[in-house]
Design a protein around this nucleic acid. Structure first.
Lengths: 201, 201, 201, 201
DNA sequence: GATGAATGAGTCTTCATTCAT
DNA sequence: AATGAATGAAGACTCATTCAT
């Protein structure tokens, strides 16, 4: 009785275990044996599915990229008004929930690993390309509706996205001055006070 | 016959070599033999000055923290008007010049390593504490002079700083959509259009 | 498909190789690569079974302790009369046969290493505890049979055991004045002339 | 103003420091830097006086051999009666006093090192040769005076000396069953009950 | 498909030894 | 005579990778 999908399942299982280990231990300290243990498989099996450690890590990031992309699908399907939607996005990216936190860890490791790895740079480029287009689209909707200030929507999107990333790093590093709560108010202040068309000053 | 300062010089020499190797190869791939080669000393000498690799790396980051702090001393001594000064700061942090680029690389590695290392988190905390106070001070000067909008100066500083960090990451990753030039215009747009008190919309 | 007992066999193989190297080269000069070579395995395998060199050496001594204990089992099963039995024991401990010689070498190294290592001290304590009880039992049998002088059997056992150890050291050191032959006559003289109840003087 | 003996003094200083380190840390763990620290000199100076570590250790043992020989000079100059003198000797070798304890440690290390080193074997041979002659001489005095049993004086000396060595090892290893006190009574029992000509049985 | 014992190249680390001062 | 900074060979240890089962 062949189970045709067993291979694919195993791959997923291993790739997900890889994220978790990256998120918990960091890239630098990742050992294949840890991944094997976390995935509940033998170390030999890792190499059955992935030729080298490098291949595994690359695949894990690729898979995580897809995962991250899917995780923000909901944004496309919301009928909320633009400013509200931006706030929801910010809210969903605050490094509070376990899963979001893990996402930030994995993505941070990808960034730094990407400094040396063109493949990962491409992943990042694709991801942020979509990200910018998504946020810029929302901003453009707001501009069309007359609730968001004029100016390059892409540039405004870049501001918000970069701000989220920069603040998240500080939160991840356990800064006492930049907590997740503080990150929320800072982002919300930007959306409430700087993006709107005629916000009071 | 004591050879004065030899020890201190050697330490500096090794620490600086360590930055360079971190900046070029990344933290994960750093081999002590590379540091030794770069510093032009024997591998044994590394251990003569630093007990373990870990100690060396920690010391290198600490030293880099001091270095980074000193590198922004000039900001304190400028008589420029606030908005102009903020622009100069942005300009000086664009990842263009070799030295600035290296700084971003080292600091990125510190961030990601800091995810696992409380000591590095503290370094980051100190550094960003100063950073926020510095930028917030300038903003407050601008508010006092009536050229910068009202609101929490610290919060505005956090926005700008986070934006710089977030954009720099993308530039460092070689994004074709986010170049150093693009980063400049984005930051300048924020300073010119969002910070001033009564900027036209 | 599990390969049963492979692990346990390997451990034994490595531990025995370790004795031999200790016996031949001494503790101080023991290199893991020598043990690996002697055991006919790779150096990595040593660490597969033993975390550190220290662990290996400790385990080797522990295993040797068991081995030594077993090697004297025969004494319990002999029906010989007490004085005869004591002589057989002495005979079996003369540093003449290859295996006995090796035993003395390993045990000497254990002694000196034990000066710094409480774990090894405990091993020695256990071993000599059994040893004393065994010899004292034989002596007590002799006293009960009226062929061995009165007095504390444990004390008499301690005399004989210490004498064997002290003489063996000199033999091991290749003394020309204290050969194995000389050691034999000295011990036999003690048993023949000093232990018996009414030996002529 | 040349101090002609400064070199000789330094040598002594270093050699004595070497004993102490051997006694405290054991031979296996001895580092020249520890010796230098203990002697209060630079590591370079060790090599000024001794070409190699091996040379130093050999010289240290040689010097210790002389030292040990001198330490028992008093035996020659005592007018005590033979049995009493043997007891004094035993007393003086009990591993109780700091200095005696150190002596046993150094000598134990010499034994085990001697298993590999013919030079040290020779030292031991010389030392034990004198030792046997000395003790045998006393025993012979006792035999001449009619207070010690007949038989080979050398053999009786070997018994006593070996017994002392064998017991001392157990005491040094911190045996709870063989304390210095126990060692004393055991040796004294041998002298009191086994050596005399017509001891009651 | 799967295991995990085994390998060995790669690195960190130690420390005797050298040598400029 | 003396120092201690510097060296580099030696050796412990790690871990990705292989392969017999």
């Amino acid at each position: 009785m062949p189970r045709p999908h067993v291979e694919e399942e195993r791959r997923q299982q291993i790739l997900e275990a890889t994220w978790h280990v990256i998120a918990v231990s960091g890239f630098r300290n990742l050992r294949l044996s840890d991944v094997a243990k976390r995935a509940g498989v033998s170390s030999g099996m890792i190499h059955y599915y992935f030729d080298t450690k490098r291949d595994l890590l690359k695949a894990a990031f690729e898979r995580y990229y897809e995962h991250s992309t899917q995780r923000r699908q909901w944004v496309m399907e919301t009928g909320k008004d633009p400013l509200e939607l931006l706030k929801l996005i910010v809210e969903s990216y605050l490094p509070i929930e376990e899963e979001t936190l893990e996402g930030w860890h994995v993505w941070s490791e990808l960034w730094v690993e990407g400094l040396q790895e063109p493949d990962l740079q491409q992943l990042n480029e694709d991801f942020y390309g979509q990200w910018r287009r998504l946020v810029a689209g929302i901003i453009r909707d707001g501009q069309d509706a007359g609730v968001i200030r004029d100016g390059s929507a892409i540039e405004l999107a870049n501001m918000l996205i970069a701000m989220i990333d920069g603040l998240a790093i500080q939160v991840l590093l356990g800064s006492r001055s930049m907590t997740a709560e503080r990150m929320r108010t800072t982002c919300m202040a930007f959306i409430d006070e700087m993006l709107p068309k005629s916000a009071a000053r």
